[in-house]
Design a protein around this nucleic acid. Sequence first.
DNA 1: ATGGTTTTTACTGCGTC
DNA 2: GACGCGGTAAAAACCAT
Length: 325
Amino acid sequence: MTDTSIRDSTREREREREREEEEQSEELACPECGGNLVSDEERAETVCSDCGLVVEEDEIDRGPEWRAFDAKEKDEKSRVGAPTTKMMHDEGLSTNIGWQDKDAYGQALSSRQRQKMQRLRTWNERFRTRDSKERNLKQALGEIDRMASALGLPNNVRETASVIYRRALDEDLLPGRSIEGVATASLYAAARQAGTPRSLDEITTVSRVDKDEIARTYRYVVRELNLEIKPADPVSYVPRFASELGLSDEAERRARSLLETAKGEGIHSGKSPVGLAAAAVYAAALLTNEKVTQNEVSQVANISEVTIRNRYHELLEAEDGLGAV
DNA sequence: ATGGTTTTTACTGCGTC
DNA sequence: GACGCGGTAAAAACCAT
């Protein structure tokens, strides 16, 4: 036992050394002095670090000529997008192993060979279907990325969205549903989970799928994957609305506290969180003497003025009830 | 499908600039 | 007179059953 393992490990080491030598001779050795080659991308040259011999020059830099500092910028500057419709799902690149048990000359195979081929077929099929899932994933992730940046959602949301999508894919939730639909639903769920929710309407504007389907798919995915998603917290909308309206930090703080007391009073159950947030923002602006009209708030929050009125009365009542003012 | 709740639409009156 | 605001009634949308 110990004998064999020692012999194994020495052989292993030998093989490794061989491999390293191969790599050295193939890629990194200078033809002149045998020294290391270093590629200098700035000058588009490959030079030997020992003797200075230039092995290649005027190399082509295949990277983009622009620089991007965040995802949004990258999106704007990039002139190529995700590959769209590739008609054939695998672009005709995957392999099939024939079903006849014949060799290249048409001779029948031995039973031993036949067994081997059968095993190969099985594995080839497994890899191929895995590939198709990979492709599916790639398209969905591209879609998620596109929508996320259109909505200005941070990277961690994209990541959770992809995780959710992967799970959906693994649990075979896709058949009978569109990739876009599930991708959108995943993003919606991820945004809510991460505490940076976007309303269904906002999601709908950037998705290729209509609202009903998103809602349906979302419910389905949440149920099947047992995702725990609490109803959106109104507070999480506040910063966004406040900044879009150009309100002070003070107003934002007031809005938060307004919502906290409202929560304490239990006013918020059953009401749309967006409406509540919008009302709080409006009320806060009023309290800090910053001029914002109900109309403006209703615009940024996508909520009707009436709802704002109703909610903000309730908010102020709750505040008064506590003897705050 | 149904009924109850919430939100929206549409309209009206009041005060201010 | 336009605009912001408040209120109301009816319609529409939403949700659980």
